[in-house]
Design a protein around this nucleic acid. Structure first.
Lengths: 192, 192
DNA sequence: ATCTTAACGCAACGTTCGTCGCATTTAGGG
DNA sequence: CCCTAAATGCGACGAACGTTGCGTTAAGAT
């Protein structure tokens, strides 16, 4: 998620317009949720003309994609708690917080990903990047001799994190933080 | 998912219209995917008037909801293979097949559930029903003495099935049937 | 067979959506 | 400071969407 360095004219007004628009997207999202998020509403709130939004962002999902990329934390890496189980619990708590926040930007972007291919691609890239970085907790555990070297990082992370997404996003039912912790423990125990 | 028994006039023409429409929805879905699924296209293909579709089904997600309910198998129950692991593998293979089919009705309904509350509710009810029935594999395992009595069925099923949904639906990446089996084994082992 | 009325067909309407051509502003370079 | 072109503002347009009023058909009751 590198910021667009080769933009032909990223200066003053353009940057200000982008900031205004993304701020409006966030506010609109907070007030009316994803369904109330429309190009016209964002245009009205931001003071930027409809046509400009259609030209630069094309669609509502496009706006959310940009919001996602603008907020991408390039320095993110999983916490090091000293044990595999502790690391997985920390990861799951982050996911749990992101999915239960109201409004949840993550939930909104997921919804958007079912509308346009561009949003789906952006989200896939984002998650690929995150899971790749999170694989660090597995290699650290291997280095500590906690788990065997042949362990598949992705399978392990899937076991730990998938239940949160499934329960909170698809099944649309509550999940306590304790339950989230518990799934991290199950995953950690599965590779011992 | 009981068929609407108290419909005031479900007879001949009305039933025929519904059958024509749902058939058209399925065909249209197969050819153009969810994005190409529009009220007008379904009306044209089915020979039923636009207005009728708007009156009875309101929205495109509404059409998919009805398709889901029409295809609901009220007799469904999980296969009995004689072991918890075998049962979970069987369940996961069904889910795997449903999510990798092309076109996948399940994937389409999931996409629809992010558009209208009615679709989200219908899907939630459907899954609640399925997971409740699938809990049978857990009670059978308890009866066989395979696992302790205090086992939480939902947590176990979540561990087994969530990775499939997450990988195939949200992460939008492939998963082999062997990997699906593997997650069933991990779940089975987690309660031993 | 007749009647009632729910369900459907039909045409027209207003709204929202996304696009286009053109004028205006302004960032960034000479 | 001036010049060029990218970015934005503006108004209008056509198409798609969803709704409404009214006439017609036919299911189900008497």
């Amino acid at each position: 998620m590198i910021a667009e360095v080769h933009a032909s004219r990223p200066g003053g007004r353009t940057a200000r317009v982008r900031a205004d628009v993304l701020a409006a997207v966030e506010s609109e999202l907070a007030e009316h949720g994803y369904d109330g998020l429309t190009i016209d509403a964002v245009a009205a709130r931001s003071g930027v003309h409809r046509t400009t939004l259609y030209r630069r962002w094309k669609t509502v999902p496009g706006l959310l994609v940009d919001l996602l990329e603008a907020g991408a934390d390039d320095a993110w890496e999983p916490a090091d708690t000293g044990s595999l189980e502790g690391d997985l619990i920390a990861v799951n708590r982050e996911i749990h917080a992101a999915l239960t926040a109201r409004p949840s930007i993550t939930q909104a972007v997921i919804a958007a990903s079912f509308r346009t291919a561009a949003a789906a691609d952006a989200l896939t890239r984002f998650w690929e990047d995150r899971y790749e970085r999170t694989a660090l907790v597995v290699s650290r555990a291997v280095a500590r001799g906690e788990i065997p070297g042949g362990t598949d990082p992705h399978q392990l992370l899937l076991t730990a994190t998938a239940p949160l997404y499934h329960q909170l996003v698809l099944l649309r039912q509550p999940m306590s933080r304790d339950q989230a912790d518990q799934h991290a423990r199950i995953a950690a125990a599965s590779v011992r």
